[in-house]
């Protein structure tokens, strides 16, 4: 075993590096999903489309600012979460609120939303994948290979955003409201927590996080209207393994899935990685149906 690691060290290192970058981005996307589920008890199937919208908006900002990738990137970091968050808030008010957050109806409604967003992007953005230039370009030279510096920045920024969300949850008034609503919405309401607006805001924050992840990822992997499905499924895997509604579980699971994805992608094939991730889910479910950190849910 150790001899194998010595022989393959560059590859192992690359897998770890790639896996960590994937894990950070995945954690960001899955955190949005997990937050929405935790507080609202809603599974948002359109979550991946919010990610895709973030990427598409990043492309739009990049073009709007002419040939200045850094300016476009910074603009996108503001525009994408605001626009996508607003869209999410609107769909919460117009759709989810009306069906009283009934679990199955919301899933159907968000599937509907997924199709609507996909079609609109297809109509106005087109079916082709469009590249976006990275805001900063440099290579980090390791003894065995050079690695894209931007990827490391993506991981770093994702980490900052994760910390920011955690800070929001534990230090702000909104965070307090969110945790109160998560524990017991009815009791929270009697104590004067405006749960209706908390729901809208949580839905907007979840969508905003996905959009930000989209902005960060787009220089690595182009923008196209179908890109939302894969991160959605991966986030589902993460959220199931970590336990629905548990933010800690989401983070731990994102790293398990991200790094194993990195390893299998480097040593075998990406398709196989996705298939094995599902087998991992099946194994977790057989051993512990509520996931690693999940509590019993009604």
């Amino acid at each position: 075993m150790s001899a194998w690691i010595d022989n393959n060290f560059p590859l192992v290192f690359l897998a770890l590096l790639d896996g960590s970058v994937t894990a950070f981005v995945l954690a960001l996307i899955a955190l949005g999903l997990s937050l929405v589920f935790g507080v609202m008890r809603v599974v948002n199937v359109a979550h991946g489309e919010f990610f895709m919208l973030g990427a598409v908006l990043a492309w739009a900002c990049f073009h709007f600012t002419g040939n200045m990738p850094l300016l476009g990137f910074l603009l996108a970091l503001i525009v994408a979460p605001v626009f996508v968050g607003g869209l999410a808030m609107l769909s919460d008010r117009l759709i989810l609120h009306r069906i009283q957050y009934n679990p199955e109806s919301t899933i159907v409604a968000t599937i509907g939303l997924l199709y609507i967003i996909q079609q609109l992007v297809l109509t106005f953005f087109g079916p082709e994948a469009r590249p976006v230039e990275a805001p900063i370009y440099f290579r980090v030279q390791f003894p065995w290979f050079g690695y894209s510096g931007y990827k490391l920045i993506v991981a770093g920024l994702s980490g900052v955003l994760l910390l920011g969300t955690w800070f929001l949850m534990v230090r702000s008034k909104l965070g307090l409201y969110m945790r109160a609503t998560q524990q017991d919405a009815e009791t929270a309401r009697t104590f004067g927590v405006p749960t209706k607006s908390v729901y809208s805001k949580v839905f907007a924050i979840g969508a905003g996080l996905a959009a930000l992840a989209g902005v960060l990822v787009v220089p690595i992997r182009q923008a196209d209207y179908l890109m939302g499905l894969e991160p959605l499924l991966l986030s589902f895997i993460v959220v199931i393994i970590g336990g629905l509604g548990s933010l800690r579980g989401t983070l731990v699971a994102a790293f398990i899935v991200g790094i194993s994805d990195g390893f299998i992608s480097v040593f075998y094939e990406p398709t196989l990685a996705k298939m094995l991730a599902t087998v991992l889910v099946a194994a977790v479910l057989v051993l512990k149906p509520t996931g690693l950190f999940g509590e019993e849910i009604r």
Binding site: L233, I237, E269
Partner: peptide
């Protein structure tokens, strides 16, 4: 899949479905 209930069941079936699709490609 039936070891889970509620929304987990939905997600799990969705993922198994996607695995079936990937198997077709693989």
């Amino acid at each position: 899949a039936l070891r889970t209930s509620g929304v987990s069941f939905l997600i799990v079936t969705l993922m198994f479905g996607q695995t079936a699709f990937l198997s077709v490609l693989y």
